[in-house]
Write a protein that binds this DNA or RNA. Structure first.
Lengths: 225, 225
DNA sequence: CAGGATATGTTGACACAGTCAACTTCTGGA
DNA sequence: TCCAGAAGTTGACTGTGTCAACATATCCTG
């Protein structure tokens, strides 16, 4: 047996994932992953510069799986982009519901931005699926004209928020006792889709007709360094 | 000077908050808070059973402030519940945008559920504000009939998701470069409100008319213990 | 096939964290 | 007045992330 272990890197990612799934975010530890992979405590440093990098790799793998799950859900709704959008939303919430700790890691501050380009890329890929489908909905006349990225972002926010609340067990009891996660995802998506649908006469009083079109492109906001 | 320090507890919460604001979630440490409060490393254990309890207290205070900010935003829209709802949504996003780490702590797994009833209570209070205002919108005919808790929850999910993405810097570049957070909050809320507004004829194809009324009350789902 | 360069792992150590046990000091009421 | 309990301190233990120095396997070149 190649007792350079073959491929430690993958083993470590798997070990860390296992630690994460049972034991929560606090349960994942560099030394623990090394132990679980049967190597010494500092062996991981040959593959990851630090703990954050390991976590980022785990998160990246999570995004890849999430993207796959969403794509799988969307298939079978080929003709119906709205159905595909709903299915993807449900798939995301479902993913978060199982793999709670994993989802938290993925969307958390484990690794910020540019540190780990592969992570960013995987996340953007999943997000891109949504945008594409939104565009399809627009072509089908089921979503009004406007920047598809913006619409997709609103949908993403909604579903992500739902997932986060679910994972963190912060869904108000009244709501939790009445609906299952998948139902919540479906209904929330449908409500949003209604809002995104066509232009319609606003109720008397004041016009509520958000177009979600930018007034003028803006540079990124200043952030504390 | 009362060198029983007067009220260490409050000082520790404040110190931990300061550590949190600059230094992120990893920067807050029991020993650090104690140092900052000018006491020994184990003094906090006279006031908090463990680190989690301190964090919970910090989070609780955050929810209280958030609730206050939302209430403040809603005031001045007394006659216009829709405007109040929008203002509250913007206030929440604004709160998350500043106090990023604090918001992450509040909505994170710092303390789960029953551990810290005061936390839960403060969170539910903020959430209750939304529900009340949704009810007002229904009375004003601006939101269709249905369970206000469910509608409020959808709105909460949307705004919370937006805030989370903002704090974790996971807003896609295209979106981030085009809109400011407050604009995103306002527009997203408006889209959702349109969806929540009145019943309307669905487009041809299939009816999309989510009522958000429960089929039948359900018990809580089983969770891994 | 030889032999070093390089990737891969290991040992030992350091600083820092959360937490506990034992001790000291302050303070409010019988 | 005086002491019981609250409030705070000291010292120690374990576990963690990380570094430096060392050991070994692998691979490419001569």
């Amino acid at each position: 047996m190649a007792y350079h272990h073959g491929n430690l890197r993958a083993a470590l990612v798997e070990a860390a994932t296992a630690l994460l799934e049972d034991g929560g975010p606090l349960g994942v530890t560099l030394r623990g992953a090394a132990r679980r992979a049967g190597v010494s405590q500092t062996a991981p440093y040959r593959h990851f510069p630090d703990k954050g990098a390991l976590l980022a790799a785990v998160a990246e793998q999570g995004f890849r799986r999430l993207g796959a799950a969403m794509a799988r859900a969307a298939r079978g709704h080929g003709a119906d982009p709205v159905g595909a959008l709903e299915a993807m939303a449900i798939a995301l919430v479902h993913f978060a519901d199982r793999h709670g700790a994993h989802y938290r890691l993925m969307s958390g501050p484990a690794v910020r931005g540019r540190d780990h380009p592969a992570l960013r890329e995987a996340a953007l890929a999943a997000w891109g699926l949504l945008t594409t489908t939104v565009t399809a909905c627009q072509r089908a006349g089921r979503i009004r004209a406007g920047d598809p990225a913006a619409f997709a972002f609103v949908l993403w926010s909604l579903v992500h928020g739902l997932s986060t609340l679910l994972v963190d067990e912060q869904i108000p009891p009244i709501v939790r006792q009445t609906w299952l996660p998948a139902e919540l995802a479906k209904k929330a998506t449908q409500v949003l889709l209604e809002g995104l649908a066509g232009k319609r006469s606003a109720r008397p009083g004041r016009a509520v007709a958000p177009t979600l079109s930018p007034r003028s492109p803006r540079r990124r906001r200043a952030r504390r360094p």
